[in-house]
Computed example of a mutant assay.
Amino acid sequence: MRYLLVILIMGVISQLSRITPLFITSNFKFSKRVNKFLSAVPYAALGVMIFPGILSVGKYPIVGLAGGVIAAILTYLKVNIIVIIAASVAVVAALNSFV
């Protein structure tokens, strides 16, 4: 029961931290320059989370970089995201088994 209460409280706090900025910023009108900057933030945050993982996949960073390059190429070619994930995981798994 205690764990359920902790999970519930954590869920409420998480949702409040996500919803509060919506209400605060809904009254503001930002310039085009600020909007352009803010639209790039999720991509930058995603890159910050993904890149360290790429470098720490196996014993050698080149294995993760190979998977990242495959993912980047397939993304550029506008391949389905499931195929991109499967291909990059397959490349990393294959290279890890050989290295």
Rank of each mutant, 00 (worst) to 15 (best):
M1A: 09
R2D: 03
R2N: 13
Y3G: 14
Y3T: 13
Y3P: 03
L4V: 06
L4I: 02
V6I: 10
V6A: 10
I7Q: 08
I7T: 04
L8W: 07
L8D: 01
I9Y: 04
V12Y: 04
I13V: 14
I13M: 09
S14A: 14
S14Q: 06
S14V: 04
Q15C: 13
S17K: 13
R18G: 02
I19C: 06
I19A: 14
T20S: 05
T20L: 15
P21I: 12
P21C: 10
L22G: 14
F23G: 14
F23H: 07
I24H: 04
I24V: 12
I24P: 02
T25L: 15
T25Y: 12
S26R: 10
S26Q: 15
S26K: 09
N27G: 15
N27P: 00
F28Y: 11
F28L: 15
F30R: 09
F30K: 07
S31V: 06
K32H: 15
K32G: 15
K32I: 12
N35M: 09
K36I: 11
K36L: 07
S39I: 04
V41S: 04
Y43A: 15
Y43G: 15
Y43M: 12
A44E: 07
L46S: 11
G47R: 10
G47K: 09
G47W: 11
V48P: 01
V48H: 00
M49V: 15
I50G: 04
F51I: 15
P52T: 04
P52Y: 10
L55M: 13
L55E: 00
S56E: 08
V57L: 14
G58W: 04
G58T: 07
K59G: 11
P61I: 12
I62K: 04
G64A: 02
G64D: 05
L65P: 00
L65Y: 05
A66T: 12
G67T: 05
G68K: 06
V69E: 02
I73Y: 04
L74D: 01
T75P: 00
T75S: 10
Y76R: 01
Y76C: 04
Y76K: 03
Y76V: 07
Y76A: 03
K78F: 13
K78I: 05
N80I: 05
I82R: 14
I84H: 01
I85D: 03
A86T: 15
A87Y: 03
S88H: 03
A90E: 10
V91K: 00
V91W: 02
V91T: 13
A93W: 08
A93L: 13
A94T: 15
L95C: 10
S97G: 08
F98E: 12
V99K: 07
V99H: 06
